[in-house]
Design a protein around this nucleic acid. Structure first.
Lengths: 240, 240
DNA sequence: GCCCTATTTTGGTATGACAAAACAAGCAAT
DNA sequence: ATTGCTTGTTTTGTCATACCAAAATAGGGC
């Protein structure tokens, strides 16, 4: 005699999928608010009438989609995902791709391409507050020239302002993704106050072109800046 | 007396992670070539000395990262991932985000932004072959005006050429991702030969501007095209 | 009220079992 | 000989149970 409940489920689909969908719906409905812990696995078993195997698989799927965050031995926490989560989900494969030949270069070129468009946009549409924010980031960058670690942070922050200007929530997430993906390849680069000063001057060029409403100049300055940076770090990749 | 093997593993990490990493390495090394089925779960149990629970969790993780493709009841198949896999991994969350207010608009704006930069780039750097390809896509588009279904396909193909021109493998994947994400929201739009003709004329404007090496004109034509399309479909979203 | 300890939850893993689908091999019929 | 069917074997999907260790919680002493 079989003790298992009859499947009564279309073949070619997993039982876990139904659970995933149900939980997704609950999150979307706000039933499980952001930050709340997921019900214990043993409760979900009863709720959905499935085995713990299925529940665990479902939770794993949700985690891979960024809808919940699960650390070992902790209750999974609901995370109403933003655009960063979407890009974070891709980061597994991206890491794989970066390890392959020209992977870093391809992605870096995309970044240059996008950022060139961003500075052009900024030169045309930035508002006074935006230019103000850019100026502040630039000043912080200058102040950090002697301290390479702090310089890197202010460098990233300066570029981040460019992604904020269009006021589209996707852009800041893209920036976060780029920095997190490319950062490991950047930290290997030796840094020095002299290099920092050069980079600061490039930032300064970009800032002035934007302030002066010069799209072509801004684009040229940004391309010069990022391409020079690439030439500078290229040496660390000759093993690829 | 415990029958379980001693963990001997730092707390705060999952046993599955080690298996995932090992299989990833084997895929990267070409040990498991593209298209090959993964070894049966029972073999992996022996290979790694873990339980089937762990193996299954590891395989699920690999599947979510796009490194293997698993259909129910079939052996998972190794897929050496490309940039599409990276974006496909994000699609779960993106679907979630598109359902939220302004999600479609945000993403569509990103597409406009990127594509505007692409046509500008094309106007400046497209080679003769690129412009030739664009012309062919345009002709196919024109021929399909009476058949709305075919028109949609040629429409997508026309835009795809723009993503091919920079010769960066990431761009075509981005295009695929955009179309697959936004397509469901597009098919609801009613189509007619008259609308198709309007869209074809816009494509024609873009093509001519690129051919004539006019970045500003190309950007303007593209913005006009995509913004008009948005206005046209906006009505279908007022429920959001 | 605060801190330390004992108990209860809860997630991580192991193991064994069974149904259903896929796969492989062998046999029959045209 | 090739095609099609039947049957036995793999393999996955799921269920059930059990155990451990870490986390959360309750309880008691100060």
């Amino acid at each position: 005699m079989t003790l298992q409940t009859a499947p009564a489920r279309p073949v070619g689909s997993r039982a876990a999928d139904a659970v995933v969908k149900a939980i997704e719906t609950r999150i979307a409905a706000g039933d499980l608010p952001d930050g709340a812990p997921l019900p214990p696995e043993r409760d979900l078993i009863e709720t959905f009438g499935v085995s713990r195997t299925v529940v665990r698989e479902a939770v794993a799927t949700l985690a891979s989609r960024g809808l919940v965050e699960s650390r070992p031995r902790f209750r999974p926490v609901v995370r109403r995902p933003g655009y960063d989560a979407a890009l974070a989900a891709a980061s597994g494969v991206v890491g794989f791709l970066l390890a392959q030949s020209d992977g870093v270069k391809s992605l870096y070129d995309i970044r240059i391409f996008l950022e060139a468009a961003l500075v052009r946009h900024a030169a045309k549409h930035a508002r006074k507050e935006d230019i103000e924010a850019l100026k502040q980031a630039l000043d912080a960058n200058e102040a950090a020239i002697p301290d390479s670690q702090r310089f890197y942070r202010t460098d990233v922050a300066f570029h981040a302002v460019l992604y904020d200007i269009p006021k589209n929530p996707v852009f800041p997430s893209i920036h976060k993704a780029f920095t997190s993906w490319l950062e490991p390849h950047w930290v290997k680069m030796e840094r020095s106050p002299e290099r920092n000063r050069v980079n600061f001057l490039r930032h300064s060029d970009i800032y002035r072109a934007i302030r002066d409403r010069d799209p072509d100049g801004a684009e040229a300055a940004l391309n010069a800046h990022l391409n020079a940076a690439w030439e500078y770090v290229r040496g660390t990749f000759d093993d690829i």
